[in-house]
Write a protein that binds this DNA or RNA. Structure first.
Length: 233
DNA sequence: CTCCAGGGGGCCA
DNA sequence: TGGCCCCATGGA
């Protein structure tokens, strides 16, 4: 029931999309993988914390860290800000980079509390929000955009290493280190600005990126977009 | 054993 | 800007 509803919604969005390579990729991935139900997490603050903890880190390790916080009922901005750095570091240790991430979490949470919480932030202008997020030490473009899309529900397309690798393989971009905002603009200017679509699309790219046939393997032979990939000898 | 995850910041030319 | 290094754990 939920599946069918979501599918229909995405299908309707798809019908309105211009026929281009970006909509084509979305169709393929959605047909094969279906809805991804992102972001994994039960509350806005949990999602935001996950976005910071998953920086260059396997999601499985992030889950362990979040589970530690959840067990102690610490998935709350003010509670987390009130505990000692050493205590927080110890709890998030499974996610790696635990000292630096402790500082990053607190930097973000301090900003969040100062601004009066997520509900208040949702009403603010996207560009202004993004600039503010980027000023926080430890919040870079991908993390900022993940929070904008998956927490604040703004139509911002998240670019990550998987996205770069896939676009490069398909010959859509020249180099993987192409400017972040230029790649983001590729998606945002070729797709309808729809939060639900951007949500699903990024999640699907991550899903595809995790497939072993695409993982650092230049020979992509069985992925859903194989025939769209540039032949690599 | 080696590799590498849903990055970001600092430093240096 | 562009390249390099550091941060750290745990599963494959």
């Amino acid at each position: 029931m939920l599946f069918a509803g979501l599918f229909l919604k995405c299908y309707n969005i798809a019908l309105k999309m211009k026929k281009n390579i970006f909509s084509e990729i979305f169709h393929r991935l959605y047909e094969v993988y279906g809805p991804q139900h992102w972001w994994p997490g039960d509350s806005p603050v949990e999602i935001a914390i996950g976005a910071i903890l998953t920086q260059n880190t396997n999601w499985m390790n992030v889950e362990k860290a979040i589970e530690n916080l959840k067990k102690k009922d610490l998935l709350d901005a003010k509670k987390l800000l009130s505990i000692e750095d050493d205590v927080l570091s110890d709890l998030i240790k499974p996610a790696g980079y635990y000292r630096i991430k402790t500082a990053r979490l607190k930097n973000f949470l301090r900003w969040l509390v100062t601004k009066g919480g997520f509900d208040r932030l949702r009403n603010k202008d996207v560009t202004e929000l993004r600039n503010e997020l980027l000023k926080i030490k430890g919040i870079g473009k991908e993390t900022a955009d993940s929070i904008l899309l998956y927490v604040l529900e703004k139509p911002i397309f998240v670019i990550d290493a998987y996205t770069r690798r896939i676009l490069k393989r398909m010959g859509i971009i020249e180099a993987e280190n192409m400017e972040y905002d230029e790649i983001r603009n590729l998606f945002e200017s070729n797709l309808p600005r729809d939060v639900k679509l951007f949500n699903e699309y990024h999640a699907l790219l991550v899903k595809l990126g995790k497939e072993t046939c695409l993982k650092r393997n230049p020979q992509c032979t069985r992925c859903p977009i194989n025939d769209m990939c540039k032949r690599i000898t």
